[in-house]
Design a protein around this nucleic acid. Sequence first.
DNA 1: CCAAAAGTGTTATTTATACACCCATGA
DNA 2: TCATGGGTGTATAAATAACACTTTTGG
Lengths: 244, 244
Amino acid sequence: MHSPSEQDYIEQLSIDCVIFGYQDSQLNVLVPKLNFKGDFCALPSGFIYQSEGIDQAARRILEERTGIKDIYLEQFRVFGDSPRTNKSFLERLIQLNEDELGDQHFNRKEFDWITRRFVSIGYYALVDVNKVVPKKTGIDESINWYPVRALPEMIMDHAEMVQSALHTLQLNLDEKLIAFNLLPETFTMRDLQELYESIFDRAFPRNNFQKKILDLDVLERLEKKFTGAANKAPFLYRFRKENA
Amino acid sequence: MHSPSEQDYIEQLSIDCVIFGYQDSQLNVLVPKLNFKGDFCALPSGFIYQSEGIDQAARRILEERTGIKDIYLEQFRVFGDSPRTNKSFLERLIQLNEDELGDQHFNRKEFDWITRRFVSIGYYALVDVNKVVPKKTGIDESINWYPVRALPEMIMDHAEMVQSALHTLQLNLDEKLIAFNLLPETFTMRDLQELYESIFDRAFPRNNFQKKILDLDVLERLEKKFTGAANKAPFLYRFRKENA
DNA sequence: CCAAAAGTGTTATTTATACACCCATGA
DNA sequence: TCATGGGTGTATAAATAACACTTTTGG
C-alpha cells in the first residue's frame, strides 16, 4: 500500500463507515483495531480518489473490509468541526509505539498529510453477517463485531458517529423498508421482531408487530421452519424485492 | 476580494446553501444571478477556511447574502459524484463573456483551482424574509427570491439540490418544529397553514389543521389581529421558544 | 398431556379525517 | 343584515395498542 499523500486523493476529506450487522439478537458494528500498541479502535475509513464518486468510494472501503459488493449504504451526516483532526490520537499512538516505529511508517510528509484538519462524510451500511467475512487491511490488528451499545473506546469522534448513524437508522427503518438488509434471505417473524427490538432497544408486542409487518405487504410467506424445538414451527418469510 | 486559490481554503470542498423564505403565500428560494452575460443562476456558495467548522462556514456564507447571523440551518446531503465540476459551466460563461473578461478575472491558476472536481455539502436555511435584506456579493448581478416550484434555470446540479433540500424540509417539518423560523415573530393560524400548504404543495382542512397545531402545545395565543377586513379578527400566535 | 412458542381474532384506545354550526367584523 | 373568514364542537373512520384464545410441536 502506498502512502496516502502520494495517492491521487481529495485532500482533507475522508469517509467513515458505520457497518451494521445483526447476529445473536444483537445489532453489531464492525470495528477494526489498529495494529499498534494502545488499543486504538477506529471505524473503517478511507479517502476519495479524484476519479471516483463519494458513494463509489464508500463502496470500495466497504468491500475492502467485508468482501461484498452489493451493500445497502447511505450518507447520514458530515462531521467537520474546525479542530477535527487525527493529530492528538496519532501523537499518542506514536508515543506508545516509539520502539517499533521506524521512519518507514511515518515520515514527515506522511504525518503532515494525515494530521491536517479533516472533514469526514459519515455513511452507514447494512449487511447480512452471513455474507461477510471481515477482512483486516494492512493497518488492522483485528476486526470484530461489537454490540452497538457496548462498543470499545474509539478514536476521535467515532463513537459519536455510531450514535448518529444509529439514530438515522431508527428514523429511516420503517420509511425505507431497509431492515431486511440485515437479515438472511429467509427469516422468521421472531427474527425480524428481535432485530427491531435490538435497533430500537425496546420490546414490541408480538401479535401487533406481526400484524403491522404483514400489513406492509412486502413479505411473502414460505414453508415452515422446523427447528426441532417443542413448539409450533414458525413460517419463513422473504422480502419481496419488487417492492424496494 | 482575493482569489479563492490564494485563500486558506480546504480544496475541492464547497458548501451550497438553499435559503428558504416565505412571502405572499409562497415558499421562495434566494437565488443570486452572476454578473456575467448568459443568465447564470447559482445557489449561494462558498468554501471552508482551514480554521472554521463547516456549520460556521455555512453561517458565514448565509450572513454574506442575508445580513443576519442567527439563522436556522441544517445539512441535508453531500453531492459528490465523480464528474461533478464547474468546468463546463465556466467554459460556457467565458465563451459568452470574451469581450469583457480580461486576464485579471480568470488567470490560469484561478481557473484550474475552481474547475477541479468539487464535493459540495448541501445546507438548507430557513429565514424570516422580513429580517433579510438580500445582499449581492462581488460576483452577483442581482439576487432575488423565486418560488421554489418556479426557479430559473440553474447551473450544475443546483436545481436538484433545491429539490433535495425541499424534500428534507418536508420530512423534518413536523418532527423538528421548524416551520416557525419562516414566519415573523407573530402570525395567524392562516399564515401558518398557508406556509404548510406551500411547503407540501397541497391543501389542508382548516379546522383539523388548527387542532393539530394547537395540540402540539408549542404556541401561545396573543391578542387578536384586526385587519380591517369584514370578518372575525384572527388571533395572533407566537412560538414558545422553550419548546425548541 | 404438557410446556413453549406461533398464529389469529376481538376489543379498547387513540388519532386522524370529515361534517356542521356559530361568531365576530366592516360594509 | 349580509358576506366573509375565524373558531369550535361533534361524528365518523382509521390506525394503534391491549387482551384473549387456539394451534402446533417434541418431549
